[in-house]
């Protein structure tokens, strides 16, 4: 029973930590963000397994995590307000030549993060961007200015 409770706690706690630690552009995940993700995952795993490294304990924990994941996905779908807490909301970083300074600062995103994604979309300069949006999955969507604007 302890393993099941530890697995639920570990999963929910990791969701909270990853959600709190911030949304950085997914395609640009840096080595130091990799360190955070793997380190946090590894440490959580140790406490979940406890002093019982048996096969049945591992199977129980994996099933518990799968069920918890399913339940959270269902809750998110059923109640959009909770979905907002779990996933967050898309945020505009740049619109019509104006940086959204507060959003950029609070989300710890710099102009070169946006430019990196713009280059990925085949753009050469920031002034070619009409909108840059930080999506819920951490990616930055770039909407290019139309030719006649």
């Amino acid at each position: 029973m302890a393993a099941v409770l530890r697995a639920i706690w570990g999963y929910c706690f990791l969701v909270l930590i990853v959600r709190t630690a911030g949304r950085r552009p997914g395609k640009q995940i840096t080595p130091f963000e990799f360190v955070f993700i793997f380190f946090a995952g590894g440490v959580t795993l140790t406490s979940m397994v406890g002093n019982d490294p048996s096969l049945i304990n591992a199977v129980t924990i994996i099933i518990t995590i799968a069920v918890t994941h399913f339940l959270i996905a269902w809750i998110r779908h059923r109640w959009p307000a909770i979905g907002l807490i779990i996933d967050g909301t898309p945020l505009v970083l740049l619109q019509k030549g104006e940086w959204q300074v507060e959003t950029m600062r609070r989300m710890r995103i710099k102009d070169d993060d946006v430019m990196a994604m713009a280059r990925d979309n085949g753009l050469e300069r920031l002034d070619q961007i009409e909108y840059a949006i930080l999506e819920r999955n951490g990616e930055i969507s770039i909407i290019q200015k139309s030719e006649n604007s």
Partner: peptide
């Protein structure tokens, strides 16, 4: 929509609450 043209679905009211919550959490 943003500027009545781009459908983003952004909820800034929620986001400000979330920033306050994470500030307390830190």
């Amino acid at each position: 929509k943003v500027n009545d043209e781009l459908a983003v679905g952004s909820d800034l009211q929620f986001q400000h609450k979330w920033w306050r919550f994470t500030h307390a959490l830190w």
